[in-house]
Nucleic acid binder design. Structure first.
Length: 628
DNA sequence: CTAATTATAAACAACT
DNA sequence: TAGTTGTTTATAATTA
């Protein structure tokens, strides 16, 4: 007991408010915030510093990419400066879905890069499942992006690119090389056959001329001096002998983004090259860069950026919607593997009292099935404030349903707030009411994590019950039970995404969803439309439709229950139903019954998202009560 | 910087 | 009296 509370205390206390806060809060999690006590980077481990550096560099590179694509000229100096250690690698791995495009820029660290990009791909995959024909192309684009970044990374490592964090100066040429313009040509050809893709591009208002002029001048001013002899296949730069080139690449021979396993990775090429030299030759001969491809490359970069935006948007969307995790298995796998790494390495830093259960069987409970752990659960790995999950709103029901076993056995903090957990527990009960003790039991039964530190979390539970208006105490003959006032619960869900209607509009129109598949887009459009049409939403949401998308969603069960349980669980649900003697209303429960609208609406959206062949999934997800 | 949300700790009262 | 249940206040972290 004492030990438990002690650790608990430690866990919470630690956050220092230096720039390292997030890092420390991460690592210290269960343990000594040892690293956080200081206020400088001095405490940061070498590894962290490395990460930091990589992040900075990466971010700069990314920034540059974005600039190139956007035509923006604003240097990223300040942003880069802020980046320091802000988001440790672990976070990047653990919170894939939470990462906004901007955060992504900051978070990206070499080791994560691939994972992230793969996740993006996974997302795109998801979209594909939604019926998008353009996906193939988009995925390729993503790959291109991946290649770009990897290459940039390599360049940085080599010192070939004097990437100043504050300047984000990455030579255009290097980008071009990384992008493999020829490949772009190919892509272009492929795409040519797909009117929608071109349509998309037009729609997105890609301005080749503008962009290219921008990037050109940009690269012209900064590039050459920094890449002394990094020969480029396009011949724009001084062409060196393959050997020289290969030598310059030697240290990372195997890491050339386009060269691996003895063959050219140029999409669709696969030419065999015995060594780097040969590969370079091959590059020069087969994948030369001409003006056209250069232009295409630039367009490509823009497209890539668009994709990034889309990814961000779709991520937000999927987060806001109960799209079952199995929608993107690849991501899940990734996530789970990430979590494994996490757990094995940093989840419980040295000195940390490893939770009893997990110590013995930390990962065992992981299902090998497709559902494994959804990303949200990853958030919880380690002592992250669960608020995250709640915020980014992982449907607790589906999450729990899927990872029920995991939480039962792994000493992992569930990524949900106490409030949402309590609510879930109560709603899960046959008569949607539980005594305090029953709630306790539910916690301990469902989560290994809550089998310890009982004093702490029980206190928290009680505190939550008392504090939140959404929990209504009902006294009956046998004592008191707690019920949930859905309306209140939904009501208090704050705007999570400060997305104004404008944002939504933008996302839907060309920019974000320009090339999203029709159904996806339609679903989103519809949802936003509905949302916008809903008076409640319009004036309620400070932010706008996207907010509403979120509302009531961090808990699928709400949706489900309201839809399935005929009335018994409707938002307006009055405590009286419980045949209580007396009800303590903490405050008037708000009379807006329209609140149910967003919820059912969500159901609609979900359905829209559930495309052919996926209905089964949706159904799986609905009965969230089945967990247990 | 501020406000809101959440987690945690703790004091305290009422009740069993 | 001790433990449980509830309420309330305070503090800190995090995020928008």
């Amino acid at each position: 007991m004492m030990v438990e509370s002690a650790t608990e205390t430690i866990r919470t206390t630690p956050s220092t408010q230096n720039g390292v806060s997030s890092l420390s809060s991460q690592s210290d999690s269960g343990g000594r915030e040892g690293s956080s006590n200081g206020d400088t980077n001095g405490e940061i481990s070498p590894v962290d510093l490395l990460h930091l550096q990589q992040q900075q560099a990466l971010q700069a590179a990314r920034q540059f990419l974005l600039q190139q694509a956007t035509g923006l000229s604003s240097p990223s100096s300040n942003e880069v400066k802020q980046t320091p250690v802000q988001v440790p690698v672990s976070v990047a791995m653990m919170t894939p879905q939470m990462i906004t495009p901007q955060q992504m820029q900051q978070i990206l660290s070499p080791p994560q890069l691939q994972a992230l990009l793969q996740q993006q791909q996974a997302l795109m995959l998801q979209q594909q499942q939604l019926g998008n024909k353009q996906l193939a192309f988009q995925q390729q684009l993503i790959q291109m992006q991946q290649l770009q970044q990897q290459h940039l990374l390599n360049l940085q490592r080599q010192g070939l690119v004097g990437l100043q964090p504050g300047q984000g100066a990455v030579p255009m040429q290097s980008l071009q090389q990384a992008m493999c313009p020829a490949d772009l040509q190919q892509l272009w050809k492929d795409v040519a056959g797909v009117p929608s893709a071109e349509e998309t591009l037009k729609h997105e208002g890609l301005d080749l001329s503008t962009t290219s002029s921008n990037s050109t001048s940009y690269s012209a001013s900064k590039v050459s001096p920094q890449i002394p002899h990094h020969s480029l296949p396009n011949g724009q730069n001084s062409v060196h002998t393959p050997k020289r080139d290969s030598s310059s690449h030697e240290e990372h021979t195997g890491s050339h983004p386009l060269y691996g396993h003895g063959e050219c990775k140029w999409p669709g090429c696969e030419a065999l090259c015995e060594d780097m030299g040969q590969f370079i030759k091959h590059l020069n001969s087969e994948h030369a860069l001409d003006d056209r491809s250069t232009a295409q490359c630039r367009v490509q970069m823009q497209v890539v950026q668009q994709l990034e935006i889309q990814v961000g948007a779709s991520r937000a969307f999927t987060l806001a919607n109960p799209i079952p995790a199995f929608y993107f298995p690849s991501q899940l796998n990734l996530a789970s593997s990430a979590s494994l790494m996490k757990r094995d390495t940093e989840a419980y830093p040295e000195g940390l009292p490893h939770p009893p259960t997990s110590a013995a069987t930390p990962i065992t409970p992981l299902r090998q099935g497709p559902s494994v752990i959804s990303s949200s659960s990853l958030h919880s790995v380690g002592p992250i404030r669960r608020r995250n999950s709640d915020k980014y709103c992982t449907p607790i029901a589906s999450e729990l349903a899927q990872n029920c076993e995991f939480y039962k056995n792994a000493d992992v903090r569930p990524p949900f707030t106490y409030a949402s957990l309590i609510r879930h527990a109560i709603l899960e009960a046959p008569d949607r009411q539980l005594t305090l003790n029953e709630i306790y039991n539910w916690f301990t039964r469902m989560f290994a994590y809550f089998r310890r530190n009982t004093a702490t979390w029980k206190n928290a539970v009680r505190h939550n019950l008392s504090l939140h208006k959404c929990f209504v105490r009902v006294e009956n003959v046998k004592g008191a039970v707690w019920t949930v006032d859905e309306v209140e619960y939904q009501k208090r869900r704050p705007p999570k995404m400060t997305g104004s209607p404008t944002l939504v509009k933008n996302m839907i129109s060309g920019l974000g969803f320009g090339s999203l598949n029709a159904s996806y887009q339609a679903a989103l459009a519809e949802s936003s439309l509905n949302l916008l049409n809903s008076p409640t939403m319009v004036n309620t949401s400070s932010g706008g439709s996207l907010n509403m998308l979120h509302v009531g969603h961090d808990d699928v069960s709400s949706t489900v229950e309201q839809v399935n349980s005929n009335g018994s669980c409707s938002p307006g649900l009055s405590p009286q139903q419980y045949g209580s003697h007396q009800v303590h209303v903490k405050e008037e429960p708000a009379e807006m019954e329209e609140d149910s609208r967003p919820v059912s609406l969500m159901a609609t959206v979900s359905q829209n998202l559930a495309l052919p062949g996926d209905e089964r999934e949706m159904e799986e997800e609905l009965p969230a009560e089945e967990l247990e």
